[in-house]
Design a protein around this nucleic acid. Structure first.
Lengths: 140, 140
DNA sequence: CTGCTTTTTGAGAATCATTCTCATTATCTG
DNA sequence: CAGATAATGAGAATGATTCTCAAAAAGCAG
């Protein structure tokens, strides 16, 4: 089952009606594997209102179908939460470039922390910041 | 050497002049061990302008004396970057409560990722989201 | 200490992302 | 199809952050 299908199913189960605008937002997220800004999504969807984009992202986030990630800049990034594509981000502080990575070791450590805390951990977010290869070269 | 002293030294080395407003912002950050919002700092410093607070936070962030953390809400959090108090955060998605934690296992995993990437990793940020004990109780 | 140059600062305007309002339109149910 | 209710879009409202610019302070040379 693809992420898009799962999203549709979950929304249905949660009692949402199926509107065309929400579907379009989901399609954009489904097509992109890494983080997108709410306004980027809005710009790609000429006929969909900004409010709807934000609303949909909020709904998807609450259903844990989408995750909000802070990628340094001014706007928040959103990306689909897909168990089979779970990853985190390296952000270049100079050029803003974004690179995904995954690590079982890291996931295990996070799992362990969740266990021994008194929080019911539902999601996590890891961001490493630094200079990417090309920016490090040109550095002073 | 305390964090406040180190911050003063680094700023001096970086060629900044010593103004009273910047010092006050540093004092607030030095006194707080966890994340503060720019506006919270501004509110505590009656005589310091908003612009100065933001400017100072930006300068401190670039010198890696302060770290910006995304604690879910609308505003960004800032906290001092102190090797001897290194920690990350658990955020309650219901009430917004913030709890710090630390894990050597986690740090080791992050270190390893940095090694094998082509980024020069300068900082990292881990946020776990979920429900805190008291919110989980009252859940539907 | 005095004058000069450069940085720091504060007040308020400007910007930009995000949220809200509300009238309109679309869905679902029977 | 009709009624009830959710989804949507346009634009206003909000709130955080950034910008502008003139006044005040800091560092420095004489």
């Amino acid at each position: 089952m693809t992420w898009g299908e799962r999203a549709a199913t979950r929304l249905d189960e949660a009692g949402f009606r199926s509107g065309g605008s929400r579907r379009q937002v989901i399609e954009v997220l489904a097509a992109e594997s890494c983080a997108l800004t709410a306004l980027e999504i809005d710009r790609r969807l000429e006929s969909v209102g900004r409010a709807t984009v934000y609303r949909t992202l909020e709904q998807l986030e609450q259903l844990h179908l989408v995750q909000r990630v802070d990628i340094g800049g001014d706007a928040a990034g959103y990306e689909r939460l897909d168990p089979s594509h779970h990853h985190h981000h390296l952000v270049c502080e100079d050029c803003g470039r974004l690179a995904p990575f995954a690590s079982d070791e890291l996931e295990a450590a996070i799992e362990a922390i969740g266990q021994r805390s008194d929080f019911a951990v539902a999601a996590h977010d890891v961001v490493l910041r630094g200079s990417c290869a090309s920016c490090a070269e040109g550095d002073a």
